[in-house]
Computed example of a mutant assay.
Amino acid sequence: PKVAEFIKVGDSILIDDGEVGLKITEKIDKYTFLAKVFKPGIIKSKKSVSFPDTEIELSVFENKKNKDLLKFIVQEDIDYVAVSFVQSMLHVLEIKEFVEKLGGDQWIMSKIEHRSALRNLKEIVKVSDSIMVARGDLGVEIGLDKLPVIQKKIVDFCIRYMKPVYIATQFLPSLMEKPYPTRAEVSDIANAIIDGADGIILTNETAVGKYPVEAVKLAKKVVINSVKLVYSKPLADRYIDTTNKIVAEHACHIANKIENSIIVAETETGFTAINITRFKPKRSVVVITNNKRIARNTNILWSVKKVLIDESVINKIVHEEKLRELLKLSDKTVVYVGSPILKGKTTMINILQI
Results as ranks from 00 to 15, higher is better:
Asp77Gly: 03
Val216Thr: 02
Glu94Gly: 01
Leu70Tyr: 12
Asp16Tyr: 11
Val213Lys: 04
Thr206Arg: 02
Tyr180His: 07
Thr346Ile: 05
Asp198Pro: 03
Ile288Gly: 10
Leu121His: 05
Asn244Cys: 07
Thr169Gln: 14
Leu102Val: 00
Arg278Val: 03
Ile294Pro: 03
Trp107Gln: 13
Val127His: 05
Ala134Ile: 05
Gln170Leu: 14
Gly139Cys: 07
Lys282Tyr: 08
Asp53Ala: 09
Val334Gly: 04
Asp129Glu: 10
Leu202Ala: 02
Asp241Phe: 14
Asp156Ile: 08
Asp16Thr: 06
Pro173Asn: 15
Phe157Asn: 14
Lys322Gly: 05
Asp331His: 13
Tyr161Cys: 09
Leu342Asp: 12
Val227Phe: 08
Lys71Asp: 08
His91Asp: 15
Arg115Glu: 04
Gly136His: 13
Lys111Ala: 11
Ala215Gly: 01
Thr269Leu: 04
Thr182Leu: 05
Leu69Glu: 14
Val213Ser: 02
Glu325Met: 13
Thr169Val: 15
Pro164Asn: 03
Ala273Met: 04
Ser330Leu: 06
Ala168Ile: 09
Val223Asp: 01
Val186Ser: 07
Met132Glu: 07
Lys217Glu: 12
Val337Glu: 05
Glu205Thr: 01
Ile78Cys: 01
Glu113Asn: 06
Glu94Ile: 01
Lys328Gly: 15
Glu185Val: 09
Asp145Glu: 15
Lys64His: 12
Phe33Gly: 04
Leu327Tyr: 07
Phe271Pro: 00
Thr54Asp: 06
Asn260Arg: 13
Ala273Arg: 02
Asn66Phe: 13
Ile274Val: 14
Ile78Trp: 00
Leu22Ser: 10
Ile341Tyr: 11
Glu76Leu: 00
Lys228Ala: 09
Asp68Tyr: 08
Cys252Arg: 14
Leu90Cys: 00
Asn204Ala: 15
Lys96Glu: 07
Arg293Met: 12
Val313His: 04
Ala117Ser: 09
Leu144Ser: 11
Ala168Gln: 03
Thr25Asp: 10
Thr333Arg: 07
Phe72Leu: 11
Ile13Tyr: 04
Lys316Ile: 00
Met162Phe: 11
Ala219Asp: 02
Ile246Tyr: 15
Leu202Thr: 08
Ala184Trp: 01
Ala295Trp: 03
Ser261Tyr: 04
Glu26Met: 09
Glu259Val: 09
Ile262Gly: 06
Glu177Leu: 10
Val149Thr: 12
Gly143Cys: 06
Arg135His: 10
Ile317Trp: 10
Ile354Asp: 02
Lys39Glu: 12
Asn120Ser: 08
Asp331Asn: 15
Ile42Ser: 12
